[in-house]
Design a protein around this nucleic acid. Structure first.
Lengths: 191, 191
DNA sequence: AAAAAGCTGTGTCATTTGACACACTAACAA
DNA sequence: TTGTTAGTGTGTCAAATGACACAGCTTTTT
């Protein structure tokens, strides 16, 4: 839970009572590799914070091809946004790529935190705003970069992910085929 | 301002006093085609709601190529998220593609609304959550679709945009060159 | 009105990509 | 232990794409 505490701290100051209140509404859990955290038609009623391991968030295109939407890594907060916010069933998948340790914040606890007091509701508001900002930055960055640049970015900023996540999944994440990613790796190795 | 009122209504119920308070903190403005709303190094301290026309939000890649990040259309709320949330100067551009009518909500007014009362702060929180959800859905949708599907999506759901925005900009928006988009259009016309 | 700038349509051609195929290795389950 | 499944490296080839080039058209500027 220490990791989650530090994650929260990064969003601003908060009294220690409120921090404890926050953390007391989160529960730790561990799941083995291969666990299907989320399947289509499921109602996602929690937000997850990853402490260790990798999650594979993916869906299928109209052509039946599996498309990676996100590889969730440690120290990252994630949920099926649409399902969580709008109470609709998810249409995508989320599977543990490794043994995973995570914290769960249930929707009812999320609501309880928001209505506890002003500091907490402002704190949560600030977190959501910052996550929104980060999402936009991430999407814009992706738009500007070529496939090769995206791979170099992974290498630089998500080294462990590159080492531990299957190449096919990385390829799909950056928007190409595993063969093309392989060509990029070969080229980089030669240089 | 009526359009903005309806936009807000779409996010949930709110007392008419609060709605009026909200709207009284927004100001209407009109800018002619070609206006540079935002230039690099500028500090963006407002959120904009478009009532009419189109905005071109773009940046440049490492290769000096102009990349369209978003074409903002009527009934859409937009800002340079990073700059607005984190008080950092923007590095991108936003230019009016046509004569544009918009509403502006300054950061200080945004704060004033959030702290006015509980209903308003919850209302704003709910809007931010829903916008975040929509952003994620949009990004995921884009990941799943081919260039052609993205164009068909524009045709179907943003007909006016396809008619009024230069093809080069649309091509960049969906992630391809104007030549390739042209090939797609030719193919669709033949069918 | 003339000139300039921006946008569009289109052809050619070299390059990049994806699809397929196959061998090899690692991980896992019976 | 053995069979099975998942993942990787690599080659070939057809198809898709981007870069370039140029002509015609529209809009804006002088």
């Amino acid at each position: 839970m220490q990791m989650l505490r530090n994650y929260f701290k990064g969003f601003g100051d908060i009294s220690s009572e409120n921090m404890d209140f926050l953390l007391s509404h989160c529960t730790s859990l561990e799941v083995p590799k291969g666990t299907e955290l989320i399947k289509p038609n499921q109602d996602v009623d929690a937000v997850y914070f990853l402490e260790e391991g990798f999650l594979h968030y993916y869906t299928y295109s109209d052509f039946g091809e599996r498309v990676t939407l996100k590889v969730v890594e440690a120290n990252y907060c994630w949920t099926m946004m649409d399902s969580f916010v709008n109470h609709v069933p998810s249409s995508d998948y989320c599977v543990a790529l490794s043994s995973v340790r995570l914290c769960e914040l249930k929707r009812e606890n999320y609501q309880a935190i928001k209505s506890k007091n002003k500091e907490l509701s402002n704190f949560i508001q600030s977190i959501v705003e910052q996550i929104l900002s980060a999402k936009v930055i991430e999407a814009n960055k992706k738009s500007r970069m070529t496939i090769e640049q995206r791979y170099l970015d992974l290498l630089e900023n998500h080294t462990k992910m590159v080492q531990e996540v299957p190449v096919q999944i990385l390829a799909s994440l950056i928007g190409t085929s595993r063969e093309t990613l392989h060509r990029i790796r070969r080229k980089l190795a030669a240089a």
